[in-house]
Design a protein around this nucleic acid. Structure first.
Lengths: 284, 482
DNA sequence: GGGGTTCTGGGG
DNA sequence: CCGGTATGGTGG
DNA sequence: CACTTCTGTATG
């Protein structure tokens, strides 16, 4: 949960209590406001998000202790944390640590959910980080296994609801001059009403393609610019490291050791009698 | 008969795994020539705890995890089994934890482990080692080395329909009796005993209070297709009025059906869901169906009951089906809108039929003006005329178009027309009120207005039978259920 | 082993 | 020099 | 034949 976010206090009076997850509250609010971040209450927008970094690469995943989503950094943000003289912060070394995201925003964008697993039905709530601080001292007593926010039952329903409203608004605004004199060739043509603007000359048979041109999803050119994480990785660790990272996929290698937590763990070594070998001896 | 070595049976189905399971070293496989028994099966409670030798066992499965990954190159499937020498005798109340054995199967690949979908199926394990773990008899088997398993369905005779590790599996003729015996015993056991004792799961009413993960035994009241990958199961066990929701991936749990009683191995209470009750699963969680004729399934079914549909429940929180289909179509297969409007162009099978069951939600109803939902129908000209300004209700029929959508067409830009045109009698009872002049019949108009609102509400679904006539789909034998 | 993956990040 | 890979050895 | 274990070599 957020450190200072009154996440438990939705701007609008709701019938149900807010969920015990900052990210879930956030997506509730954002969808309720049709993706308009500026409409969220100031107490939410100006709060800091204290998050655990679940993974730094190849996607930067942060969790609120319950759910994780993907975070994106602005150019300014990267520049600032790389400029720290004494304690330069490497984004890609934050895995396992805590960060406090002090300046941020969220936006609703259209993506391909077949490729982006931090999304649902081609909708993603994108967390853009303008400014953050690494919290080295604090302990990580957050939930160990956060879940994908976009796999939550209620979040899915919420996004479905959003899409459905977008669609029916679209449908309502569609001027449909049905030319009865024109012969209908196929059953599909006779029975299909497309959301696509017929005046644009688009083919009526939009069977395969994906429609996500909803008015409240930001197009690419309206999104806040963020730095590609792979570029950050190369900048911080060099091109060799990236190559090594990719090689590690070819033959799955050892688990990457989070930079921040690999110190205090040389104490335990006594291989507990693992019983995954029927020929090994001792019972318990 | 020639008393030769047992013939290895070619896998009857396509093998799940790519490995071989040729008998390898250890204990039993020392069949002297002339002897026909290479494997000797130990009763669960008599297998040696001290020898450390590999042993071979048959057991009845009463619980199992889904095969899950534990690190870069290890997968585990852990199960509970019983047999006539070691089984849970308590019918209710606390069971004795020593009254079953556990089996832990280790493998390098997901495909090398069994996916257990039913309680009561029989598992055979070759070359397992037995040890005591937390007071339990635990059989460990390294499938990545020389152990192997085979799972035989509780239903059916012989060893057909078995799944197994390796490319093939052996089956000696003496095992016919072994298998038949344990099947018979299991049958009786499941009918007389609860099998899953009450300390092995918690009532749904107590789910919210659980500190960590827990198991559930409940009836699946409904399987709702949430999206192209996911079903939402509606569970009840009679311990409270609530219906619980759990998301179950279609691919992972393809065999869960409405009406089944299931055991969920490992769920947690979702503290973030405020609008409905939700259970969360993990990658090691499993959903196992409890045999329908078992004592346990019957008890749970009797307790769970059905959740009746009422208008107040149509609040957008849970997806709700507002209609019911005439029982005579119970066997009619369901087709998606993709089938009805797209695949029909190429699929001969669909082209050859004209009546389908289908499910959809309504994005818009035309006419937008409810009073225009009915017309006065002229049989000669086959035209409907508005009742506006008219008296009486001569030849009243419904003429309503639903613009609809479903999971299969979720991403495309289309909405599809499904018609309620009652001029030939199709769908005449859909709205539970005969077609009438809605400019004069205020009561009917009001009722239809309410239906209109509920049908187009988010999470409202229509389950309908449609008939294709002249290139259009007409609803029939379907009515709103309240 | 009553559990924690991932080029598999909607079987794992 | 470390660790992963390829190769030969082993039991069934 | 598939698996484990040991050894030597190529690779970085």
């Amino acid at each position: 949960m957020f450190a200072s976010v009154p996440a438990a206090k939705p701007a609008t009076a709701k019938k149900t209590a807010p969920p015990k997850s900052a990210f879930k509250t956030l997506i509730f609010e954002l969808l309720e406001n049709k993706g308009d971040f500026s409409k969220l209450s100031q107490s939410i927008r100006k709060s800091s998000l204290k998050c655990q970094v679940n993974q730094a690469f190849p996607k930067f995943l942060v969790s609120d202790g319950t759910y994780f989503l993907s975070a994106y950094f602005t150019k300014d943000c990267i520049r600032k944390c790389h400029a720290e003289k004494d304690r330069k912060v490497n984004i890609t070394d934050l895995q396992g640590g805590l960060i406090s995201i002090n300046k941020w925003e969220v936006e609703l964008i259209g993506v391909n959910s077949a490729e982006e697993f931090i999304s649902y039905q081609n909708v993603e709530m994108r967390l853009v980080v303008h400014e953050f601080k690494a919290l080295y001292g604090e302990q990580l007593k957050l939930r160990k296994f956060p879940a994908n926010l976009f796999r939550d039952d209620e979040v899915k329903a919420l996004i479905q609801h959003f899409i459905q409203e977008e669609r029916s608004a679209h449908l309502k605004g569609l001027k449909r001059d049905f030319d009865a004199s024109k012969p209908l060739l196929t059953l599909r043509e006779a029975n299909t009403v497309s959301l696509l603007d017929p005046s644009k000359g688009s083919k009526q048979s939009a069977d395969e393609e994906i429609f996500s041109a909803f008015t409240h999803l930001l197009p690419k050119n309206k999104q806040v610019e963020t730095v590609n994480l792979q570029e950050i990785y190369v900048a911080e660790k060099g091109p060799d490291a990236l190559r090594q990272f990719n090689i590690n996929f070819h033959f799955a290698q050892k688990k990457e050791v989070p930079c921040l937590e690999k110190k205090a763990r040389n104490l335990k070594h006594g291989r507990r009698a693992s019983h995954d070998d029927s020929r090994k001896q001792p019972a318990v | 008969m020639s008393s030769t070595a047992p013939a290895a049976v070619a896998a009857p189905k396509k093998a799940r795994a790519a490995k071989k399971a040729t008998p390898s070293k250890d204990a039993a496989p020392k069949a002297k020539r002339g002897e026909s028994q290479r494997y000797k099966y130990s009763e669960l409670n008599k297998a040696s705890l001290t020898s450390g030798e590999a042993q071979h066992i048959y057991g009845v499965i009463i619980d199992a995890t889904f095969p899950y990954k534990t690190n870069q190159d290890r997968y585990i499937c852990s199960l509970k089994i019983v047999d006539p020498s070691l089984y849970i005798k308590s019918q209710k109340g606390t069971g004795d934890s020593s009254d079953f054995a556990t089996v832990v199967l280790y493998a390098k690949r997901f495909e090398d482990l069994p996916i257990i979908t039913r309680l009561g199926d029989i598992i055979r394990v070759h070359r397992a080692t037995l040890r005591l773990y937390n007071g339990q008899r635990q059989f460990n088997a390294n499938i990545f080395y020389n152990s192997s398993w085979a799972v035989f369905p509780q239903e059916g005779a012989g060893h057909g329909g078995a799944s197994h590790s390796g490319k093939n599996y052996s089956f000696e003729k003496s095992e016919d009796a072994t298998l038949a015996n344990i099947r018979k015993w299991a049958q009786g056991y499941f009918q007389q005993y609860n099998v899953v004792s009450s300390d092995l799961y918690v009532p749904l009413a107590k789910a919210a209070g659980q500190k960590s993960d827990f198991d559930v035994v409940a009836k699946v009241n409904q399987v709702f297709e949430l999206d192209e990958y996911t079903n939402e199961l509606r569970l009840r066990d009679g311990s409270g009025a609530q219906t619980w929701n759990v998301l179950a991936l279609k691919l992972k749990f393809p065999n869960v059906h409405a009406g089944d009683v299931v055991r969920i191995r490992s769920a947690t209470y979702d503290e973030t869901s405020t609008q409905k009750k939700v259970l969360l699963l993990s990658h090691y969680s499993n959903i196992l169906t409890v045999p329908a004729n078992s004592k346990l399934a019957k008890e749970v079914k009797a307790k769970a009951g059905d959740e009746k549909l009422d208008k107040a429940a149509i609040n957008g929180v849970n997806a709700t089906v507002l209609t019911e289909v005439d029982k005579k179509h119970a066997g009619l297969p369901v087709h998606s809108l993709l089938d009805l409007f797209h695949n029909i162009e190429t699929d001969k099978e669909i082209q050859s039929k004209d009546t389908f069951r289908t499910q959809f939600y309504v994005t818009k109803i035309e006419s937008a003006d409810v009073k225009e939902w009915t017309k006065s129908y002229d049989k000669k000209t086959k035209k409907g005329a508005s009742f506006k300004g008219q008296k009486g209700n001569a030849n009243a029929i419904y003429q309503v178009q639903f613009l609809v959508k479903d999971v299969s067409t979720q991403f495309n830009s289309n909405t599809y027309k499904v018609l309620l045109y009652t001029h030939d009698g199709l769908g005449a009872n859909f709205f539970n009120t005969p077609a009438d002049n809605l400019y004069t019949n205020d009561k009917a108009a009001k009722k239809l207005q309410e239906y209109s609102g509920l049908l187009t509400k988010f999470n409202s679904w229509v389950d309908a039978v449609v008939e294709r006539r002249n290139g259009f789909y007409f609803i029939k034998d379907t009515k709103i259920a309240f």
